[in-house]
């Protein structure tokens, strides 16, 4: 990829880019299919159940069957809904979810775009999805979905700030916003990763990231026990599927971003283990983060809506700000 990106743009190279992007799109779709299966299995095991077992061997075709079912399901749009916005909303939610994946480096040579503003690009685009959620909630003309959409907006603006500020420490250590530079700045031993020097930042980042994903314990926009399904109450068939797809593509994105920012990307945890290919290390860490997100869902109850805001502003934001100056002191004392 590196050489291709450095050559002048020709039609042939452009088509190769397009080809790789399409291959990657299908990899992501495959990931989403099996992430849903894995999530149901993991949560099943944690609750002493089996999870899906019927469709295909070990239930492996369960998600495929679910997708097919959604595809051939009747699509109902309520009479009172704002038709144009109702149709646009799932698309607006999905597009940024896939677009942010362009900047993530998997190995030194396997990446799609090495933007020098990579991290900023990620933060900027990922917050656009909320607009789709609010639009969906508003356009449905339904009380539950309106409340879900509004909650999502409030949650997004409260947790966006700790999320963005918590990575400032990482930027200070690496001196660049390009995600490739950030990974290259980390070393081949686990104590050279950003994880240990950025412990506060990492914890704040993880909590804020789960909240941005709208997953348990922060799944208030959906909150099936109080808002039925929140912003996507009125959605059915494949329009609903695109909301779900966007959510799981964000799981992919956040797990990759955590790996890149804090867990050393493709670097092995110990320098002796260098002979194992970087992609494998990336995947291992990535799968661990994904598992961690599912584990949280099986473990934590949903946070109360009145505690949600104050937690973000009173705990996470001051912690994220302290982290900046702790990092500054660390750089002044030990790295200069």
């Amino acid at each position: 990829m590196t050489e291709l990106l450095q050559q002048a743009l020709t039609w042939q190279n452009g088509l190769i880019f397009l080809g790789w992007a399409i291959v990657f799109l299908f990899i992501v779709l495959g990931f989403v299919t099996y992430a849903i299966y894995f999530e149901r299995k993991v949560i099943g095991w944690m609750q002493f159940r089996h999870g899906p077992t019927r469709v295909g061997p070990l239930g492996l075709l369960q998600s495929v069957a679910d997708v097919l079912k959604l595809l051939i399901k009747e699509d109902t749009i309520p009479q009172k809904a704002d038709r144009t916005l109702f149709i646009l909303a799932p698309i607006i939610t999905f597009v940024p979810a896939f677009a942010v994946l362009a900047v993530i480096p998997y190995t030194p040579s396997l990446y799609f775009a090495d933007l020098n503003v990579g991290l900023l690009y990620y933060a900027a685009l990922s917050s656009l999805s909320t607009i789709g959620i609010i639009l969906g909630g508003w356009a449905s003309n339904n009380k539950y979905s309106l409340m879900g959409g509004m909650r999502s907006a409030a949650q997004m603006i409260s947790y966006e700030i700790p999320l963005v500020i918590s990575v400032v420490g990482v930027v200070m250590l690496s001196g660049g916003l390009s995600l490739n530079t950030i990974v290259e700045g980390q070393g081949n031993n686990f104590w050279e990763w950003n994880l240990l020097p950025q412990m506060i930042g990492f914890v704040v980042f993880m909590i804020a990231a789960v909240s941005e994903l709208n997953r348990t314990p922060f799944d208030l926009p959906e909150a099936e026990s109080e808002l039925v399904a929140g912003y996507h109450v009125e959605y059915s068939g494949f329009r609903f599927a695109f909301f779900m797809l966007a959510e799981y593509v964000y799981v992919f994105a956040i797990a990759s971003l955590t790996t890149v920012l804090f867990l050393g990307g493709w670097h092995p945890p110990l320098a002796i283990l260098d002979f194992i290919p970087g992609l494998l290390w990336f995947m291992l860490k990535f799968v661990f983060v994904v598992f961690f997100l599912f584990w949280l869902r099986a473990t934590m109850p949903r946070i109360r809506v009145d505690q949600l805001m104050s937690f973000g502003w009173k705990v996470l934001l001051p912690l994220a700000l302290i982290n900046i100056f702790v990092t500054a002191a660390y750089i002044e004392l030990f790295l200069k």
Partner: peptide
């Protein structure tokens, strides 16, 4: 080229 990739995505 990096931005071409972003546009493709």
């Amino acid at each position: 080229n990096n931005y071409v990739m972003v546009v493709i995505f």
